[in-house]
Nucleic acid binder design. Structure first.
Length: 320
DNA sequence: CAAGTGGCTGGAGCATCACC
DNA sequence: GGTGATGCTCCAGCCACTTG
């Protein structure tokens, strides 16, 4: 039986067949898949039929509306995606071995990482590997953010680590804690202050993110806990660019995470104080898919992110 | 209208054989 | 033993047509 299975996979199950099955599943139709692959519809039909014969189960449900994967088909597709990914990684690894200074890395990142930690790591690695291309995809915190890992559209994610993790198929490496700082422009009336007390702050003009975001919720909690009114925001916005445009006017206060301030090129135009009470976002970490072999270039880039993040693992007072 | 079938064609792969 | 020619088989693709 084992021999027969091996024989079926080795001699009859072809990458081309899986490629066609993937295309049909993605397009929901054999005719559309055929068009995309620049082959005729009968070829697609025959391939799927042969594949079903080889494996011995129905992989697609056909109808007037097209074709959709059966549970058997979905199982094969899920593994096929992983198989194609492994092959792609193998090619990338060979390319990297042939030309170690080149390669491609695909990273998913939260906007705060893109404005701080990542540019620093990119600057670091490109100094030694100038041919390396880093693709950065901006992600937003949401339950389906990990689909980018599962679909292999990114090699890894740099983001905030969930405290109670239900994603059993992921590896999580925590890099550093992420305290929030109160920030104002260097020309502001607060610039000479050495400390900020929470009672001073509730009446000021704040730039705050939307209340349904993590920072928004933390701000509300802190002021409530101190028996104070939650500040009425002057500007509600999550765009980092907006913060950097408004803060130098000296009229606004904002809360920004330490890693963003540590690495930002705008650091010189603002003044930052540790928040008067522990204000922490979820820690920053690297998330990868378990059982997925990363390319040497991706591994190298992760090493550089660790290296660049190292100062942030030290106690709060030592930095910023 | 989408999928499936049948018959055909061109090309790649393989086994065999002759020759050097 | 290595190389090239030859013929056979298999496979992927096409078109025309049928089926549901």
């Amino acid at each position: 039986m084992t021999m027969r299975l091996v024989d079926r996979i080795g001699r009859r199950l072809k990458l081309r067949d899986l490629h066609i099955l993937l295309a049909v599943s993605e397009r929901g139709s054999m005719a559309k898949a055929a068009h995309d692959l620049a082959i005729s519809q009968p070829v697609v039909s025959k391939t799927i039929s042969d594949l079903e014969g080889t494996i011995g189960v129905r992989l697609l449900d056909r109808s007037r509306q097209g074709a959709v994967a059966t549970p058997y088909g979905r199982a094969l597709l899920r593994r096929s995606i992983a198989a194609f990914d492994e092959l792609r990684e193998a090619v990338r690894e060979i390319e990297f071995l042939t030309e170690p200074t080149s390669g491609e890395v695909r990273v998913g990142a939260l906007v705060a990482m893109m404005a701080g930690l990542l540019p620093a790591a990119i600057h670091n690695i490109r100094g030694q590997y100038p041919q390396l291309t880093i693709h950065v995809r901006q992600l937003i915190t949401s339950p389906d953010v990990y689909e980018h890992l599962r679909k292999r559209t990114v090699d890894f994610i740099v983001g905030r680590v969930l405290s109670r993790r239900r994603e059993k198929d992921l590896n999580v490496e925590t890099l550093f804690d992420e305290p929030l700082f109160i920030v104002a422009g260097r020309r502001s009336k607060w610039a000479n202050r050495r400390k900020m007390a929470i009672a001073d702050l509730s009446k000021e003009s704040w730039i705050l993110p939307e209340p349904d975001t993590e920072v928004g919720a933390i701000v509300a909690d802190i002021f409530h806990a101190s028996g104070l009114e939650v500040p009425h925001p002057a500007v509600v916005c999550s765009s980092i660019e907006m913060y950097w445009a408004l803060l130098p006017t000296g009229n606004y206060l904002a809360l920004l995470p330490r890693s963003l301030l540590r690495f930002s090129t705008h650091r010189a135009i603002i003044k930052a104080w540790p928040a008067p009470m522990p204000l922490q976002l979820r820690p920053v970490g690297i998330e990868t898919l378990k059982n997925r072999t990363l390319s040497p270039a991706a591994q190298l880039f992760i090493d550089r992110i660790r290296e660049v993040a190292q100062p942030l693992t030290k106690p709060l007072k030592a930095t910023l």
